[in-house]
Design a protein around this nucleic acid. Structure first.
Lengths: 134, 134
DNA sequence: TTCATATTGATAATTATTATCAATAAAGTA
DNA sequence: TACTTTATTGATAATAATTATCAATATGAA
């Protein structure tokens, strides 16, 4: 059952693999898995609450997470990699403070930081391409 | 110059039109504008700081904003519409509190609420489809 | 074994957006 | 004005991530 393979592959990553990362990780061991199956099982595992899913922004791919607790992430605007952010804030207070027009029921929220990761900053310095995106 | 048309069209919306919304709005008056031009000019206007852009999440289209100040939004997970959220929080304190692994430089952040908007809740009640997405 | 159900792989379809590129328009200059 | 250069546009192809389709295979129960 490829669902198990998919789950194990996600756990094998330290960080936040994309569906394609997971696909390639499994492919390297079991040659004949379909990418559709990986997408299907990642979605199912997320539904089951077995893995986390990082909200994807601005056309970037979704990333998955061995952590299942909700926590903020930082996305590198240059390479798209996702990092955990360690910041505590009062989620309930935030929810209480929200004042929406009548009738909108909030079920969750996401806090996403954007910036440039260590590696991309290094590359930019080397190439003298600071400030140039992608 | 279609850039002006595009700008005016965005201002004409109360809410947060998608590129396609803007395209249709202009088309209804000036039949022969290209969608590529609308995308191009929306991007340029955003670069110029003349309009705002709502971060798009999970494969949804981007939405644009006549407001240019950064503020949180709520996205309806059913219809995708975007709403302003009125909540004050200490952005600087949040930034200061962020503890990332060395070298990641944070340039901005987004706070996105998710939930169900008034209209979709109404529809769900009528259809008895509560809890069913899209 | 037999019948029903679930999962898979291969591939087509979808959707939002960007890239390409020739045609047109606008601006600058002699 | 006439000519040249630059910018903008429209039409359309390309891209990229993801989902849908559907026949083939696997699984499980009776």
């Amino acid at each position: 059952m490829q669902k198990e393979l998919t789950y194990d592959a996600v756990l094998r990553f330290h960080g936040h693999p994309s569906a394609d990362d997971v696909y390639r990780e499994i492919s390297s061991r079991y040659k004949s898995i379909s990418k559709a199956t990986v997408y299907r099982n990642l979605a199912a595992l997320y539904e089951d609450g077995k893995i986390g899913r990082v909200i994807s922004t601005d056309g970037r791919e979704a990333h998955f997470d061995h952590r299942t607790d909700k926590h903020p992430h930082a996305v590198c605007i240059s390479c798209g990699n996702v990092f955990d952010v360690d910041v505590s804030y009062d989620k309930d207070a935030l929810s209480r403070a929200v004042c929406m027009e009548d009738g909108f029921v909030i079920t969750s929220h996401e806090l996403i930081f954007e910036g440039i990761c260590k590696d991309c900053r290094k590359k930019e310095k080397e190439n003298g391409t600071e400030g140039i995106k992608n």
